[in-house]
Each structure stands twice: as structure tokens, then as C-alpha cells.
């Protein structure tokens, strides 16, 4: 996989206590995304001009921004959009990957050769550039960010899907189903698809974490969701203006992103071990 996602050789070896911690973080993020009001009773857009750029304190654990808005509240309310981007981009990437991977592996011949070659080229691109090309064509927006990250990470997944389908197709139960006279499409749907995709469940989980990091990187460059969004990357972008005076605006939202990405990665690895799946 090129630069858009960390390679799957990245290993986070955490003991079970770490896994529990990772689970807690992920659950918190899910709650924040679904019902942020449960975690905090402030408003993410409440302006307080008497308390601008306050450093972290008991009252404002993450400090406040240049409009006196509570940063922790903004981070919590930003979870929905960040998680949405992560899920959307990974979903899109896998749709593309499944379409290309299955087509290549099942049809074979020239089609397979062409798709494999195209994927190799897309793979040779540093994926950030692929994503930036998409943004230059479409102009920055939430949808663009999802599409950019999705397209950027699709080639790597497509190679995995193709490999999985080729491997499972050789399995005895697929041959048996075909020999029993089941229609080709039924064999693909009932036997080939679920068995080829199962080991990729962990990869999907890892992909969500990586997509969140990547999307926030694009936002950090000012190429993501336009303000006043409190998407995590957008918070980082907004905080850059005050970096020499107010470190918390950059460091703390960044720390949240790192923690979430690490937790999702740790859970993905645990899943991978449990499911005994191959990575590539």
C-alpha cells in the first residue's frame, strides 16, 4: 500500500489491558459520534469573548479557541464528522476494491492483466498526491475529502481482494459446489464472497483508523472540510494560526486523533489474530 495507509506490517503489540483500553477509547468515540450531548453539556459553538485562548484548566480541560469556544466540546462534537469521513472513505475504497478485485480475479486473462497493471500504477503514486489531484479537480468539501481518501487507499485493498479471491477459488469447497452443479453466481455469492472477505474484516477496521488520520492530514493542509466545522483535522487547521501562543489548539486535538488511530489499529490487530486472517 502506498503512502495513504500505514503498511500492515505496522505492529502494535498490546497486552490485553491495552486492548481493553483501546476498546474504551473506541466506545467513547462512538458515543461522541452518536450522542455527543451524553458526554458534555456545553455547546460546541457557544462563543465567550471574555475567555478566548485560555490554556487547559479544570473548567476547560482542553482550553478554549480564539472565539472562547471550549475545545474539548468541539473535539467531542467533531467525532461524528471525523468518524463519518473514516467510515465513508473506507467504505468507498472497499467498494472500488471489491469491484476491481473480483473482476480481475474471476474474469482473468487480459482483463486481469490490465487491472493488475493499473493498480500497480496507482500504487506507485504517493497516495497523498492522488488525493490532492482529486481535491484539485473537485474543490474542497466534505464529499471531496471522502472521495479523495477513498480513491487514494483503494488500490492497496484491491490487490488484497484479488489475492484473496484467487486463493479461495482454489479451495475444495468451491470446487465441490461447482461440481454439484450450483449456478456460477450462487457459488460466488454463497461460497466465494464470504470466505474471501472474512480475513479482510480486520483490514477494514485498520482502514478506518488510517482514513481518519489521512483525512485529518488533508484538513490540516486547509484542503478538507471548510470551517466552521469542528472535524478534527479542521480544528488542527484553525489552530495553526495561534501555534506560537496557544499550543493546546494543535497538540490536544492531534493527541486525540493519535489515540483513536492507535486504538482502532490495536483492535484491528486483535481481530486479525482472532480471525487468523492473512494480511496480504
Amino acid at each position: 500500500m502506498s503512502a495513504l495507509t500505514l503498511p500492515s506490517t505496522t505492529r502494535v503489540r498490546l497486552p490485553s489491558a491495552g486492548t481493553v483500553l483501546a476498546l474504551v477509547v473506541v466506545v467513547l468515540v462512538l458515543v461522541a459520534a452518536i450522542a455527543p450531548g451524553l458526554l458534555i453539556d456545553r455547546s460546541p459553538t457557544a462563543i465567550d469573548l471574555k475567555a478566548t485562548l485560555q490554556p487547559p484548566s479544570w473548567q476547560h480541560p482542553f482550553g478554549t479557541d480564539d472565539a472562547g469556544r471550549d475545545l474539548l466540546t468541539r473535539v467531542i462534537y467533531g467525532a461524528r464528522q471525523s468518524l463519518g469521513i473514516g467510515l465513508g472513505a473506507t467504505g468507498l475504497a472497499f467498494l472500488i476494491a471489491i469491484a476491481l478485485g473480483f473482476t480481475a480475479a474471476l474474469i482473468g486473462g487480459v482483463v486481469d492483466a490490465v487491472i493488475t497493471r493499473v493498480l500497480e500504477v496507482a500504487f506507485a503514486f504517493p497516495a497523498l498526491l492522488l488525493a490532492l489531484l482529486v481535491i484539485a479537480v473537485r474543490g474542497p468539501s466534505l464529499a471531496t475529502e471522502i472521495i479523495a481518501v477513498g480513491i487514494g487507499s483503494a488500490p492497496g485493498y484491491a490487490r488484497m481482494v484479488r489475492g484473496q479471491v484467487l486463493a479461495v477459488r482454489q479451495a475444495g469447497f468451491v470446487e465441490a459446489a461447482a461440481a454439484l452443479g450450483h449456478p456460477r453466481f450462487a457459488v460466488i455469492r454463497r461460497h466465494l464472497f464470504p470466505n474471501a472477505m472474512r480475513p479482510l474484516v480486520a483490514v477494514v477496521t485498520l482502514g478506518v483508523g488510517q482514513s481518519i488520520v489521512w483525512a485529518s492530514g488533508l484538513s490540516f493542509l486547509g484542503l478538507g472540510v471548510p470551517p466552521p466545522s469542528s472535524e478534527w483535522g479542521a480544528l488542527l487547521d484553525a489552530g495553526r494560526l495561534h501555534i506560537t501562543s496557544s499550543w493546546w489548539l494543535e497538540i490536544l486535538p492531534g493527541l486525540v486523533i493519535v489515540l483513536v488511530a492507535l486504538s482502532v489499529t490495536a483492535l484491528g490487530r486483535t481481530l486479525q489474530n482472532r480471525l487468523g486472517g492473512a494480511s496480504r
Binding site: R11, R13, G217, L236, I243, T244, W247, G254, L255, T265
Partner: peptide
């Protein structure tokens, strides 16, 4: 050693950059 590697390998560039900037250039 391996904990250090696992941690640093998963840090996004922008965060490393911002932390270095704040610690070594600003503070």
C-alpha cells in the same frame, strides 16, 4: 525498543511536526 517503534510508526507527520515546533522552536 519495540514499544518505541510501534508508537512512532503510527504517529501522523503533522502531529510530530507540530509537537517538535511547539517544544523546540516555541518553548
Amino acid at each position: 525498543g519495540s514499544a518505541w517503534e510501534a508508537l512512532t510508526a503510527s504517529l501522523p507527520h503533522y502531529w510530530v511536526g507540530v509537537v517538535l515546533l511547539v517544544v523546540f522552536a516555541v518553548q
